[in-house]
Simulated assay, not measured.
Amino acid sequence: MPMPNVAPKVRIRGVILTIGITAITIVGTMAGAGLKSDIETKEKQKMITEPTGEDDLIAALEARRRGLVQARATWERKAEALRERITNNAKRNIDSRSGSDNASSGK
């Protein structure tokens, strides 16, 4: 069947639209499949990491508590070291001021 006489401009526009629609469909399909596989992977990972029974849940919570207690102890040590540095710096500043006052008044 011979092609009807269609202006070349219209034929080019039709080809461009067809290619564009095909590309959009392919990209959308690939993106949707990727999202679905990501969601399935996350669900599988969640099933693996979630405790299944009460004993597992209690053990997981106790482990989390131990970690938090250790973190708290670390922060308390850091805070105590900071307080000591502040106190030492304050004493040093007081000593340096009183030492310079005595030296200037002694002249």
Rank of each mutant, 00 (worst) to 15 (best):
M1C: 12
P2K: 15
M3H: 15
M3V: 14
M3C: 12
N5S: 15
N5E: 15
V6P: 06
V6Q: 11
V6F: 06
A7Q: 15
P8Y: 09
P8D: 06
K9P: 04
V10L: 15
V10R: 12
V10Q: 11
I12M: 11
I12D: 12
R13S: 05
R13Q: 09
G14H: 04
V15P: 02
L17W: 05
T18M: 08
I19M: 08
I19K: 09
I19Y: 01
I19S: 07
G20K: 01
G20R: 03
G20I: 04
G20C: 07
G20N: 06
T22A: 14
A23Q: 04
I24V: 14
I24N: 00
T25R: 07
I26S: 03
I26K: 01
V27L: 05
G28V: 05
G28F: 02
T29S: 09
M30L: 10
M30W: 01
A31S: 07
A31K: 02
A31L: 11
G32K: 01
A33L: 09
G34N: 01
G34L: 03
L35I: 04
L35D: 00
K36D: 02
S37H: 02
D38M: 04
I39G: 00
I39R: 02
I39C: 00
E40Y: 00
T41C: 00
K42P: 00
E43K: 07
E43H: 01
K44S: 03
Q45K: 07
Q45F: 01
K46V: 03
K46I: 09
M47A: 08
I48K: 01
I48T: 02
T49I: 13
T49F: 02
P51G: 06
P51S: 08
P51H: 05
P51W: 03
T52N: 07
T52E: 10
G53D: 15
E54S: 14
E54T: 15
E54M: 15
D56C: 06
L57A: 13
A60C: 03
L61P: 02
L61H: 06
E62R: 14
A63W: 04
A63P: 04
R64H: 10
R65H: 08
Q70D: 14
A71T: 09
R72N: 09
R72K: 14
R72S: 10
A73E: 06
A73I: 13
T74K: 07
T74H: 05
W75Y: 12
W75N: 10
E76Y: 03
E76H: 03
K78C: 03
K78Y: 06
E80H: 07
E80C: 06
A81E: 12
R83H: 09
R83K: 15
R83D: 10
R83P: 03
R83I: 13
E84W: 13
R85E: 15
I86W: 06
I86A: 15
T87C: 07
T87S: 11
T87N: 12
N88M: 10
N88R: 14
N88L: 14
N89R: 13
N89H: 08
R92D: 11
N93H: 03
N93W: 03
S98V: 12
G99R: 13
S100W: 01
D101V: 13
D101W: 07
S104Y: 04
S105A: 14
S105D: 11
G106D: 07
K107V: 12
